[in-house]
Amino acid sequence: MTFSTISRHWNKAALLTATLGALFAGCMSSTISAAGDAARGEKLAVQYGCAACHAIPRMPTQGMVGPPLRGVGERLYLAGRLPNTPENMIRWIRFPREVDPGTLMPNMDVTEIDGRDLAAFLYSLR
């Protein structure tokens, strides 16, 4: 029994919850959510250093280099060009310089699962 096994199960559970949640809540709110572990994503945001450049609620630092991320789930576009979908959010988090070669945001070698959890966290910021 390893951490990754637990986290795989956890993610399945999270995926199910998110899907059901989306089914029931879809008509009530237009805010997007991603199938990931938002609580884990919050810790990852400190680790990867998102908050060193972005203002993010509850983070130890409030960066002013990039745009603030409160309410990012309600925006229409990401990075000024990508429609705001969970897939695009994960893509932007993981490969910013592939999306926009001129961006200041560095590629931080974010793994796929970390990208999903970070996206879930960002979409939870109202």
């Binding site: 680790q47 990867y48 250093g49 998102c50 908050a51 060193a52 450049c53 630092t61 409030q62 960066g63 002013m64 280099v65 200041l104 560095p106 590629n107 931080m108 070698d109």
Partner: peptide, 15 residues
């Protein structure tokens, strides 16, 4: 990490 270092270099006063 790369992200924290980037933020520190660009605008250390935020941190």
């Amino acid at each position: 990490t790369r992200g924290n270092l980037a933020g520190w270099i660009l605008n250390p006063q935020n941190i």
